[in-house]
Nucleic acid binder design. Structure first.
Lengths: 228, 228
DNA sequence: ATATCAATCAATCAAATAATTGAATATTGT
DNA sequence: ACAATATTCAATTATTTGATTGATTGATAT
């Protein structure tokens, strides 16, 4: 009587995939990995978990097929196993936004409302970049910027805004972006820029989605990096 | 020190959504609900769970925003909260297929390989239905067929195949479909039809996806139902 | 060889989740 | 009002999952 329906067996596997995303910290790890491949220790720092704990979570996700790893010398690099993982996260976020009251409440409490921020879409931003009438600011840390960013974007992490203010053209509109839909960085940046009288908006999503959409990108030192 | 980052709070909510799908039985419930709204008892029978247990799982998913309910007299009907839920399931299945070895093994063991079955796409099937050179068989139970099906489809559940064989045109190609990508019914139907010399293929997905894609449908007694 | 460092493993304890049972609630029909 | 029916609630127990600790592996550099 141990034989079970194949459908049941398959569902068990799919449930295992879902279980692997069903944890606060693992979602945070996936968000970090959506920026590009990363070492265990870096991920541990980012999420504030112990290295051992981080390692276990990563292995769990690897077993579930969400991520893959590569060994290079002493280091193990992890990366997303494919674009379907981003789809999974997007679906999760969409359901949260539409149908979970808590999400709405948190967004209202901590972020400017989405309408006030007038987010700009990927396709619209692309046109305006071509037109050259917009300044694009990448709010992520320097290392993430270096491993890939939007064309003509300049890198200004939040804490460097003061130092880089002079770089900005007060006439041109600014569009800020960071890691993704719920990365706080670009929200903060837009607020601060507006407080200083700039015309600033947010990209509606972030770097991983831009990249996944196959839009043009720049890597490393090729693009313009602000300051220093 | 109780204040946490808003991102962490949001991720907690998204993780809760993921947890709600992360269970074998709940996936099965969602698959059933993807066919249309259903009562608790019906769902309990379908999944082989007790009514109380089913009710608890359903409430958990409702709290997570995956499903909604409606009371009608003594009955409570549950339904998916929106199309994003289907996207979530699709992403889950895609990751499983691509990156989980077990899934592949199960498919190989229990189903004909996908290539052998030469599945037909939604758009192709739509064209051929218009052309009228194809017989479409809905393999689902009668009640599911009644609440909606593909245009010109006839309903032949597996156990009725023998009785309905005479209905089928041996010249025309047959396309069978059922509940979705991993519903066994249409696999079985194609195998049986081929064993009898028919030219038979599978629709690559099933009723929920057809409906979600906004393609034309028929409801209730309006369409042709085979036999009796 | 040995020291060092990144990552993993193994064992433990604490916490969350799932199934079961029987009682409780709400609605319908008599 | 009363019984019948569909669903939910509450309490219990078994199982699974998560974090922590310290030991272990594997690779590099001295």
């Amino acid at each position: 009587m141990s034989s079970e329906s194949p459908k049941r067996l398959l569902f068990r596997q799919f449930a295992a995939v879902a279980k692997a995303v069903a944890h606060e910290h693992r979602l945070e790890l996936l968000e970090a990995l959506a920026q590009g491949e990363r070492r265990v220790e870096i991920l541990a720092n980012r999420t504030g978990m112990s290295v051992a704990n981080t390692s276990q979570h990563l292995q769990l996700m690897r077993r579930a097929g969400l991520i893959e790893s590569r060994r290079e010398g002493k280091f193990t690099f992890y990366r997303l196993s494919g674009p379907a993982v981003l789809d999974l996260l997007a679906a999760l976020i969409l359901i949260g936004e539409r149908h979970v009251g808590e999400v709405d409440k948190i967004v209202r409490t901590y972020f400017l409302s989405r309408d006030e921020l007038e987010p700009i879409s990927r396709s619209e931003l692309r046109k305006r970049i071509k037109g050259g009438d917009v300044q694009v600011i990448d709010v992520r840390p320097q290392d993430e910027f270096a491993s890939g960013h939007l064309p003509n974007a300049i890198n200004i992490p939040l804490e460097e805004l003061e130092a880089q203010l002079a770089m900005l053209d007060t006439k041109k509109e600014i569009v800020a972006y960071c890691r993704g839909a719920y990365c706080v960085l670009s929200f903060d940046m837009v607020e601060r820029l507006r407080a200083r009288g700039f015309k600033a908006r947010r990209l509606e999503d972030g770097w991983p989605e831009w990249q996944a959409a196959g839009l043009p990108v720049m890597v490393c030192g090729q693009g313009s990096r602000a300051g220093t």
